[in-house]
Design a protein around this nucleic acid. Structure first.
Length: 212
DNA sequence: TACCAGGAGAAAA
DNA sequence: TTTTCTCATGGT
């Protein structure tokens, strides 16, 4: 089947990606908010600033002045908005009982809770579910839509939930595989399946209508 | 120089 | 309801 064949080909091409980069579940959650429409290298700088300031902590972020937080987040871009979003997230996280309570929730409930936070949309929620809570949720991003529309699997204009439902229906509910698949999609998107594609270097060119 | 990046929410139509 | 606009630093 197409999705499994593409997964195997990407894995053979790039190898395991070892996602998500982050030492703790909370760091994964912070990274998921900060990486919205932003290169990961810039997110790393912002997380480094939080660590240097000893503020990579939900209560510390919750209690920090928003202007100070924005200054630490500056390298990740959109720093004023992200400072507010991260404070919103931490307020929810603390009020919800943090990891022990959240870990005990079923996936649908936890996803609904995450989506109720201003600043957490579907992709950020699913990043957190998959990479911080190890739930079998397929993360859809701009690369997913670009790559799989170019190989003729789906329409790039489809909405987030339709694409997610399609992948989850076609693939086994395997957390480790979902983890690796999304990471490989991002790797492939950054390497070759760019807005201006590098089809001569693409390991999927035999399947891709765009490379003909 | 112009484009792009591991989106989301508010405003406008 | 759907589309458009805004947010912003840093690498290529």
């Amino acid at each position: 089947m197409a999705l499994t064949r593409i997964y195997n080909r990407l894995l053979a091409e790039y190898g395991p990606q070892h996602w998500w980069p982050g030492d703790t579940p909370f760091e994964v959650m912070v990274g998921a908010v900060l990486t919205q429409n932003t290169a990961w290298t810039n997110v790393e700088r912002a997380i480094h600033n939080l660590k240097q300031a000893q503020h990579l902590d939900a209560r510390a972020i919750h209690e920090a002045p928003v202007d100070q937080l924005a200054d630490w987040l500056r390298p990740s871009g959109y720093f004023n908005i992200k400072a507010r979003r991260l404070k919103n997230f931490c307020a929810w996280y603390l009020a919800s009982g943090a990891l022990p309570t959240l870990t005990a929730m079923d996936t649908a409930t936890l996803r609904g809770q995450l989506l109720s936070v201003n600043g957490v949309g579907p992709e950020t929620a699913d990043d957190i579910l998959l990479y911080a809570f190890q739930r079998p949720v397929f993360v859809v991003d701009a690369y997913t839509k670009r790559i799989f529309s170019r190989v003729g699997v789906l329409d790039e204009a489809l909405g987030y939930e339709l694409v997610r439902a399609y992948f989850e229906a076609q693939l086994a509910q395997d957390v480790a595989m979902f983890n690796e698949y999304h990471a490989l999609i991002v790797r492939h998107g950054k390497d070759v399946c760019r807005p201006k594609p590098r089809c001569d270097k693409c390991c999927l060119r035999a399947l891709c209508k765009n490379a003909a």
